[in-house]
Amino acid sequence: MTRNEALFQFLLRLGDNTGILSHRVSEWIGHAPVLEEDIALANTALDLIGQTTFWLELAGEVEGKGRTADNLAYLRDAWDYRNLLLVERPNGDFGKTMMRQFLFDAWQSLMLGKLLTSTDPRVAEIAAKASKEVAYHLERSADTVVGLGDGTDESHNRMQAALDDLWDYTGEMFISDEVDEVLAAANIAPKAASLKTEWEELVGHILRDATLTIPDSSYTHKGGKSGVHTEHLGFILADMQFLQRAYPGATW
């Protein structure tokens, strides 16, 4: 695998994580429990769409075949998507959506922190831009996880159920493969596994404050990073890509 091939895959992973999570979060618009949360979710989704545009634009440039960010977002099928399975999990209730957001934000903030010193300046500058937004997302999702976890019996039970359901999808963040090896050797990106300890400390600390118990499970659902997805991704894409599939090249 050449360095450019590895970088292309890595950029798709970053862009597809934010793109698919953005779509999931945007499903809440008009449905959130209170207006302020509706607005907060919409704004989070918007930041993630912006980050997706930057990552996929760069992916297209690195690939060198003239594909734009829109081409990559709207004209790839599920097996060409490279997002973590975690971000395609259904929203569930509000608590589960915020738990998924928190687990992802914690990872994304650490990953972007490492990418600030990437030897590829194009990667470093997007990371610098995105990391400011993600710090804000993490503050909110962590606060919400603590507020609901250490809240009423009802909210506590729902947050524990959310954590139990999502936990087995977090291990995929830390599985290194050839893409990481190639990029780590060039100091473009860190190995996936190198973020694990810091993530566990960060997440463990918040979950303790939230009075939640980390499931005693070492099972890991995986495959998203190499294009093997759960049944949910196809439904997301059917919705997200409908317009470009039905009316190819439509603009407005």
Partner: peptide, 8 residues
Amino acid sequence: TPTYSGCP
């Protein structure tokens, strides 16, 4: 420069 990545 953009303010926020996704600012419409």
